[in-house]
């Protein structure tokens, strides 16, 4: 079976959960309890029924209309750039877990605003996706103003959800500063045609957009003291994810002078000798480099996993193990690193 939508994915998540506990629950009484858990999981947002009214195109239209523009061609152009892109898809996948995480953090007030948080995250994702297209690939240049509008709207809506307080502003701008520091450094390295990251974990900071709701939720739950531990756990997870991304984007990245970790391990000499559009093949054919990338990815996840256990965070433990399974599968079965 192919999973074609985020709904299918959440169903699979539920099924995974059900399969695991089915064996342990034999009696009728226990089975009823199990059915209640399934219901509860659906209500958690895992089934996602509560949030199916959030649609990407409607969210884009809503923002554009708010700024007095009604333009279907513009909408279609934005959709063309973002709708089928893995970046948006992986973020939507992550958002399921974020909503479940908020629910498990017993923040019902915030959970009720789940649809707003989804829309806000979609708006932010679009802003940053188009920004990357413009800066990294010199595409979507005519949509430049849209990145500004969407980035502003993302920020405003995030404050509407989490509250307009000095504390929220302060945390938000601290995270933004870290993000822009990483972005500036990365783009500057691209200008200089140098390697973008000093350490593998640095690349994970680019996923700050996904982590901001976690920080603001911890703050709202009076758990600010845990932010730095969560941050360290999260960047291990996102940087492992980024390694897969860097492998997949290797052709485009080299063409655009974006020298990521795979490029660093492969070495400039090999890359400079290669013909355009062969970079990806050269990378995956190099078993030594691919093995190193695999080991680094698993090491990053091991570190994150330990931190998630220490934090006693069930959702993050779960998504880290999901990614670990995926990394094993992709490197061993698809890339054949043996």
């Amino acid at each position: 079976m192919k999973y074609n939508s985020i709904i299918d994915y959440s169903e699979a998540f539920l099924k995974l959960f059900e399969n695991q506990i089915k064996e342990e629950i034999k009696s009728t009484e226990k089975f009823n309890e199990f059915k209640n858990i399934s219901k509860e999981l659906h209500e958690l947002g895992v089934g996602f029924t509560q949030f199916t009214n959030v649609k990407i195109s409607e969210t884009i239209t809503e923002v554009i209309n708010e700024y007095g523009v009604n333009d279907k061609i513009l909408l279609n152009e934005v959709l063309l750039h973002v709708n089928s892109h893995k970046y948006l898809k992986s973020i939507l996948r992550y958002l399921i877990f974020l909503l479940a995480w908020i629910k498990l953090k017993n923040n019902d007030e915030l959970y009720k605003k789940g649809d707003l948080l989804l829309k806000t995250s979609i708006i932010g994702t679009i802003a940053f996706r188009i920004k990357d297209l413009i800066y990294d690939e010199q595409k979507a240049l005519n949509l430049g103003i849209l990145t500004e509008v969407f980035a502003f709207e993302y920020e405003k809506r995030l404050f509407d959800i989490y509250g307009h307080s000095e504390n929220v502003y302060s945390l938000y701008y601290q995270t933004q500063k870290k993000f822009w520091k990483a972005e500036f450094k990365e783009k500057h390295k691209m200008m200089q045609k140098k390697f973008c990251y000093t350490t593998p974990k640095e690349s994970g900071v680019k996923a700050m957009l996904l982590f901001t709701p976690v920080i603001l939720t911890l703050n709202q739950n009076s758990e600010s003291s845990l932010i730095s531990e969560y941050e360290s756990m999260f960047y291990g997870y996102t940087s492992a994810m980024q390694i897969l991304d860097d492998i997949e984007d290797f052709n485009d990245d080299i063409t655009n002078n974006h020298y990521s970790l795979p490029a660093k391990l492969l070495g400039k000499a090999i890359i400079q000798k290669a013909e355009k559009d062969t970079y990806f093949k050269i990378l995956i054919d190099n078993k030594d480099v691919m093995r190193k990338l695999y080991v680094i990815s698993i090491d990053l996840l091991n570190d994150s996993s330990k931190k998630a256990i220490k934090l006693d965070d069930s959702i993050f433990q779960f998504i880290i193990e999901f990614l670990r399974a995926k990394i094993h599968y992709v490197f061993l079965k698809r890339f054949k690193i043996k």
Binding site: I6, A12, S57, F322, A325, Y329, V330, K333
Partner: peptide
Amino acid sequence: VLVKFGEESAWLDGIGGWELPMWD
């Protein structure tokens, strides 16, 4: 885990598979 979230993870191929029909 492995089969469905590994093999079918079309995003890694940079091609369809996650077309989000319920979202648009």
